[in-house]
Amino acid sequence: MSKRTPLDLKQKWFVAQHWAQMDPPLTRASYAVLMRLLDRQNTKSGRCDPSAIGLAEETGFTERSVRSAFKELEERGAVKRYRAAKRSRNQFLIHSVEELGQIARLSELKSRSGRSSSMNSTSAQPAALFRSALKRSSPETIKETIKKKRSSERETVPNSRSLSEKHGASKTEMDLGEFEKRVVKVFEREGYGYEGLLSLPATEIEVIYGEMTKGVLSFSNAVGRLLKKYRSEVS
C-alpha cells in the first residue's frame, strides 16, 4: 500500500456524517469500527492498520463481529483493505466523501460504456488462452508482412485529422472499465496504487478518456498525462 495524504478532521467529520445518513444504514458494529479506523489513522503517513482483536476490545463487539464489519465496510465502499502478506495485518484506506463520489461516477460511466458497447467485453477471455490454436505463419506470409510494412513506411504521412480519425476507430474499442484496469496497473507499477488514481478529479479522468476514444491521445499518452497530473498534485 503506498502512502496517501491522511484525512483531516473536517474530512473525517464528513465521512462520519455520510455513513450515518446512508440508507440502508451500516450495522452498529460496522459504524463503530469505521469510527475507530478514522481515529486510528496515522496523521503523517495516512496508514491505518489496527488489529481485529484490538478493535474488539475498544468497541465492545466480538472479534467475529469486527471481522464481519471489515467485510461490510469494504463491500459498501467505505474502505479498501490491503494485506502485504498472508499473515500480516490488514491495512485500511478510508475513502473520503469526495473519493466516494468519484468512485460512484466512475462506476456509472463504466456501466454506461458497457451498455453502449456489446463488443469487446472486459469479461471476455484473453486472447492468450487461444494462442495454442493459432497456426504458425508460413514464410510467405512473413515475407508479405515485411513487404507491406516497408511499403507503408514509404507512403506519405496523412494529415493530423485523418490520423486522429483512423486511431479513433480503434481506440473506441476500449471501454472505460478496461481503461481503468490498465491505468491502475501502471499506477501500481509506479508505486502509487489504486488510491493514487482515486486522488485525481473524476473530470480529469473523463476528459482524458474521452480524448483517447476520439483518437486525440494514444493510451500511453493518456496514462502519461494522468501520472503527470498526480505527480504535480503530490509534489
Results as ranks from 00 to 15, higher is better:
93 L>P: 01
117 S>P: 00
11 Q>E: 15
70 F>M: 10
91 Q>R: 09
57 E>S: 05
111 S>Q: 12
22 M>E: 15
101 G>T: 05
135 K>A: 13
133 A>Q: 09
131 R>P: 00
79 V>T: 12
66 V>H: 07
38 L>D: 07
88 S>R: 03
97 V>S: 09
132 S>E: 15
121 S>F: 00
123 S>R: 14
62 T>S: 14
44 K>H: 12
106 L>E: 12
47 R>S: 05
57 E>N: 06
58 E>L: 14
49 D>C: 11
32 A>Q: 13
117 S>E: 04
79 V>P: 04
21 Q>I: 01
33 V>Y: 06
8 D>H: 07
31 Y>T: 04
127 A>Y: 01
115 R>W: 08
95 H>Q: 08
77 G>A: 12
94 I>V: 11
22 M>N: 11
90 N>A: 11
101 G>Q: 12
128 A>C: 00
17 Q>A: 13
53 I>E: 15
75 E>R: 14
54 G>Q: 11
113 S>W: 01
116 S>R: 15
54 G>W: 04
118 S>W: 08
84 A>F: 08
42 N>K: 09
67 R>V: 05
115 R>N: 06
96 S>T: 09
36 R>G: 02
62 T>P: 00
27 T>E: 09
21 Q>G: 00
135 K>P: 01
109 L>F: 03
7 L>Y: 02
130 F>M: 03
137 S>E: 09
87 R>I: 02
89 R>Y: 08
36 R>T: 03
76 R>V: 10
24 P>L: 03
86 K>C: 07
136 R>V: 14
35 M>S: 08
40 R>K: 05
110 K>W: 01
73 L>H: 06
103 I>N: 07
130 F>K: 10
15 V>H: 12
11 Q>I: 00
97 V>Y: 14
80 K>M: 15
